[in-house]
Computed example of a mutant assay.
Amino acid sequence: MTLESSNTTVGILYDIENAPFEMLNYTLGKARRFQPCRTIVISDWEERPEQKRWEKLLRRPGFTFRQISRTFLGKNSLDSALYDSAKLLYEEGVRRYFIITTDSDFVRIAQMLNSKEKSYIIGVGTKQASETLRNAYDEFIVYPAEEKETVRKKHTRKNAETAEKAEEALEKAEPKANKKAEPKKDVKSKKAKANKAEKNEKEKPVKAEKQEKAAKATKAAKTAKAAKTVKAAKTANDEQAAANAAAKNAKSKAAPQAAAAEKPEQASHVNPAAAAPSAAPAAKSEHKAKAAALPEGTFAVRLPKTLRKQLEARMQEEEVTMDELITYLLMRGLSH
């Protein structure tokens, strides 16, 4: 098949099996950048005879549409037919191409178009195209995401600029608003302080009265406590004095009785023949000397040995002193 072309011709290789009609229509719009020149669109149009729109597309002015024949049927038959057509265009001097596909098998067509003299190849495919396919072209146009992303970026940039302007306007307006709000704030704070001072003035007499009552109650409690302590101490002193007086009286009454009890025992042990009249005054003076040697307020009592032994045994049994035991006995005798 002979294709009339030259270096002012643009070749468009359309993978009709893997690219929809919209992608071809989109590419035809992009190809106008190279005009005025001849544009040849090559594909197997008979493969999709049911699509009436091909007929309408074939009548489109400014483009030449060529039908290619496959040398064999099956997988990659269209790729091989397009490869053969691209090779013919390349040998006739065409150096500008559009390849419409997302199939990575078309990489070998791009390599062939750059085998001897480099061509300028623009690929058109979806975002699923591999990096190998993209790198094989001089340009790669994503359909349709790239245009949508461009529009979205424009809107995003516009929104960002609007937001920045609004923020700047807000920053400029904020100091003015603060200046206007400050006097009101001062008036409110002054009014609040005045109300608080007035409230404190009203509460002062009540607080003073409460403090005075609390001080009186504390003073009365301290006075009552001191009086109670003095009374208790006086009562204890009176009881102690009464006990001392009772003990003293008991001792003074018990002295003659103890002396009387001691005399019979002494008489039973003393030999009348040995007792000389001259010894009595000496013993009496010795007893007086011993009594004088005792501390003031105490007196000596001589007890019979039997009574003393009984008292000592009772003292050990009760675990008390001799004075305590005698005092107890005397008090007991006085009570009967």
Rank of each mutant, 00 (worst) to 15 (best):
residue 275 A to G: 09
residue 86 A to E: 00
residue 169 A to N: 08
residue 75 K to P: 07
residue 96 R to D: 02
residue 217 A to Y: 09
residue 261 A to N: 13
residue 36 P to I: 04
residue 307 L to D: 15
residue 293 A to Q: 11
residue 329 L to I: 05
residue 172 K to Q: 13
residue 149 E to M: 05
residue 26 Y to A: 04
residue 125 G to M: 07
residue 147 E to N: 08
residue 73 L to W: 04
residue 272 P to S: 03
residue 309 K to G: 08
residue 184 K to F: 09
residue 257 Q to A: 13
residue 222 K to E: 15
residue 38 R to H: 07
residue 113 L to R: 00
residue 290 K to F: 10
residue 31 A to Q: 06
residue 331 M to P: 02
residue 117 E to W: 04
residue 300 A to M: 14
residue 102 T to P: 00
residue 333 G to A: 15
residue 269 H to R: 15
residue 312 E to T: 07
residue 200 N to A: 15
residue 333 G to P: 06
residue 294 L to F: 00
residue 281 P to N: 00
residue 166 A to T: 09
residue 282 A to L: 14
residue 220 A to M: 09
residue 48 R to C: 06
residue 101 T to K: 03
residue 311 L to T: 01
residue 247 A to M: 06
residue 46 E to V: 09
residue 315 M to S: 04
residue 186 D to Q: 15
residue 63 F to Y: 12
residue 306 T to I: 14
residue 178 N to W: 06
residue 5 S to R: 01
residue 161 E to R: 12
residue 230 V to K: 15
residue 308 R to C: 04
residue 80 S to D: 09
residue 73 L to I: 08
residue 269 H to N: 15
residue 63 F to I: 00
residue 71 T to E: 15
residue 91 E to T: 04
residue 50 E to T: 09
residue 288 K to H: 10
residue 186 D to M: 12
residue 67 Q to E: 07
residue 313 A to P: 00
residue 78 L to D: 03
residue 285 S to L: 13
residue 164 E to F: 07
residue 176 K to M: 04
residue 222 K to N: 11
residue 98 F to T: 02
residue 68 I to F: 02
residue 282 A to D: 11
residue 252 S to M: 14
residue 227 A to P: 00
residue 24 L to A: 00
residue 261 A to G: 10
residue 283 A to Q: 11
